[in-house]
Amino acid sequence: MGKVMTTAEAVQQFVSDGDFLFIGGYICRPPFAAIHEIIRQKKRDLTITRSNAADDFDMLIGSGCVKRFISTFISLGLYGLARCYRRSIEKGIPHRIEIEEYTNLSLPLMLMAGALGMPFVPVKDMVGTDLMKVKAFMGENKYRMIDSPFDGSPVMLAPALKPDLAIIHVQQADEEGNAQMWGIGGDCRWGANAAKRVIVSCERIVSRDTVGKDPSRTIVPSFKVVAVTEEPYGSHPGYTPGFYDVDLSYGNMYKEASNTVEGFQAFLDEWVFGVKNREEYIQHYIQRFGYAQFKRLGAKFDYGYPVSYAY
């Protein structure tokens, strides 16, 4: 049974309504090909999480795919507040999502706990603030306070998270799913390993031998991976280190579009529902903005000193 498949197949097979998804990325490597496919396939009632969410989460929320969001932060970065997210919370459009709020320390540690098979993890932040007072769907299980059994000091315990599925985008993977990533990591490694299964989207599928030339870069082993999808420019308008830069003008376009419900819908109609897959998306981008602008996104190559693992 091969794991290499299209993103449409992977989403159809492994994303179910009501699932709890970890979606990797940190401006770098958002798995946008899969995000758009989830929207196209009209998945519903998802619980989504990662630290520092951005335009990909905003799109899922605006598209009505999301019921719950375990959040630390969401914005459009340079372009300010996340418009669909605000409309959901402030006006209930398309519906009001439920939010459980953590931080960029506690959430990664909760994913780490999930990955390590620990039931919970002590965290040293959040205490004394209103983040303790707001509890949503996790209720009393959002956290517990205890006196440390070792020195009696107050300690917050946060529960481990074990998502049903992680979707990540990385530079390269082999056909079995050994996924290799480099550059800014965010919480990708821990989120992926906390999940029960993983969809690996990658810029290029490489051979098992290639993976073996630099195995320290592998962040998820093949046995956790259920699908491998090759999606060049798969994280556009975000970036993938060594492949392409952030597309700031597209980010601005999304900000302008998502200012209104109608604008957001028109954006989806053009860029998500108007194309069948990532290949058509890229073709549409080139037709719309020209090949020169597309090429400008491409990274210059600057290879490092090759490493040797010989003995």
């Binding site: 630390t72 932060f73 914005s75 996340a82 605000r86 931080t103 960029n104 320390l105 983040l131």
Partner: peptide, 12 residues
């Protein structure tokens, strides 16, 4: 009145 981004790394 206005929903802001959240903590991110600020709280820790």
């Amino acid at each position: 009145k206005s929903r802001l981004p959240g903590s991110g790394g600020a709280n820790p």
